[in-house]
């Protein structure tokens, strides 16, 4: 079970308290009624499916009930960072450095 840091509660809580809520940073167009079919398709249907870091929304549904954003590595399943709704995308170069200390080497890797 993953531990997820809720940026509102400011603590790590077990995955069971959370629910995934799709890709992050997709804003509903303010003039949605007048956008083109292509723009609507982009907004509603198309999603990234990256191997590596992904921006996604989570909801602390069995906690504070807030939606927030997270950066997660789809390969290792590790959360790089979480942040509040409305905050800009974090600088990943910086976040990656902060969260990826040099992997510890064991006896076998001389």
């Amino acid at each position: 079970m993953l531990l997820i840091h809720c940026p509102y509660c400011e603590e790590e809580r077990p995955e069971l308290e959370f629910r995934h809520a799709g890709e992050a940073h997709i804003a509903r167009p303010a003039d949605i009624a007048s956008i083109s079919d292509e723009d609507f398709a982009q907004y509603f249907f198309y999603r990234d499916n990256p191997k590596g870091l992904t921006f996604e929304r989570w909801r602390h549904i069995h906690g504070c009930a807030r939606f927030f954003n997270a950066v997660r590595d789809t390969v290792s399943d590790k959360f790089v960072t979480t942040y509040k709704t409305g905050e800009p995308k974090p600088d990943l170069a910086e976040a990656a450095n902060e969260n990826k200390p040099q992997a510890k080497k064991g006896r076998g890797s001389k």
Binding site: S76, A103, K104, K105, G106, R107, G108, S109
Partner: peptide, 12 residues
Amino acid sequence: FLPGTYAQDCVS
């Protein structure tokens, strides 16, 4: 085979 690269906060 011996522990090579660690992925978590553990030690053998």
